[in-house]
Computed example of a mutant assay.
Amino acid sequence: MKSIITDGRDERFISLCRKLDEYLNDIVGGNEMREKYDQYNTLEDIHDVVLLLRGETAIACGSFKEYLPGIVEIKRVFVRKEYRQAGCGRKLMEDLEALARKKGYCQLILETGKPLEGAMKLYKRQGFHIIDNYGQYADMPESICMQKSL
């Protein structure tokens, strides 16, 4: 497994984001249930992306964007189904954290959803803890927000 740093225009990242959206639609019962989140998951402001490759195939992705000075929001974390439970999520989060630290950020935040129990377990194992819902997620009770200081 090889890790590379790219940006939000990378077609491999865009393709994995589509698969993430399909996965989320399956979990919550269709895109209509996720429409209010779509505006927060666009790729225009994503400049920092980590891809995990097996050979030439992109098997996992994650990214971040600046939320406030010193703070980045983790976005679009996804591991292809056939590679889950193989350490890809852990590697991805470690690489995102290292990149954020290298760029001078001191805090990571993220939003996930109650149905994404596997994701929440991963984030907790990586040192994240639940915080009050921030910003656009403040009035979304199905959201769970998390934070980690670097």
Rank of each mutant, 00 (worst) to 15 (best):
R90N: 10
G62Y: 03
L96N: 09
G89A: 01
E97C: 13
A58T: 07
E66H: 08
S63G: 13
I59S: 04
G70S: 11
K91H: 05
G62C: 07
S63L: 01
E94K: 14
L96C: 03
F64G: 03
G89C: 01
R80L: 15
Q85W: 11
D95L: 04
A58F: 10
G89D: 07
A58G: 03
S63F: 01
L68W: 10
L92P: 01
V77T: 06
Q85R: 11
R80P: 00
L92Q: 04
E82D: 09
K75N: 05
K65W: 07
F78M: 01
T57G: 08
K65F: 09
I71N: 11
G70K: 06
E97A: 12
K81L: 02
R84T: 06
L96I: 04
I74S: 00
I59C: 02
R90H: 12
I59M: 07
G70H: 07
K65L: 05
E73A: 09
Y67K: 06
P69I: 08
Y83N: 09
M93Q: 11
K75P: 00
K91W: 02
S63Y: 04
M93P: 12
Y67G: 06
T57K: 14
Y83C: 11
C61P: 03
A60R: 04
L99S: 04
R84A: 00
L96F: 08
L99F: 05
Y83M: 13
Y83D: 02
G87W: 15
V72D: 14
A100G: 05
C88Q: 00
R90I: 05
L68V: 10
C88W: 00
A60T: 00
G87M: 07
K75S: 11
V72L: 10
A100Y: 02
P69V: 08
G89Q: 04
M93Y: 03
T57V: 14
I74F: 10
D95H: 15
K91E: 05
M93S: 06
V77N: 09
T57F: 09
A58P: 02
Y83E: 12
S63T: 00
L92T: 09
F78N: 02
A100Q: 03
G87E: 10
A60K: 01
R84D: 09
V77I: 14
V77G: 03
K91F: 10
Y83P: 00
R76Y: 06
R90Q: 14
I59R: 08
L92F: 04
R76F: 11
E66P: 08
K65V: 04
A100S: 12
L68A: 12
F64D: 06
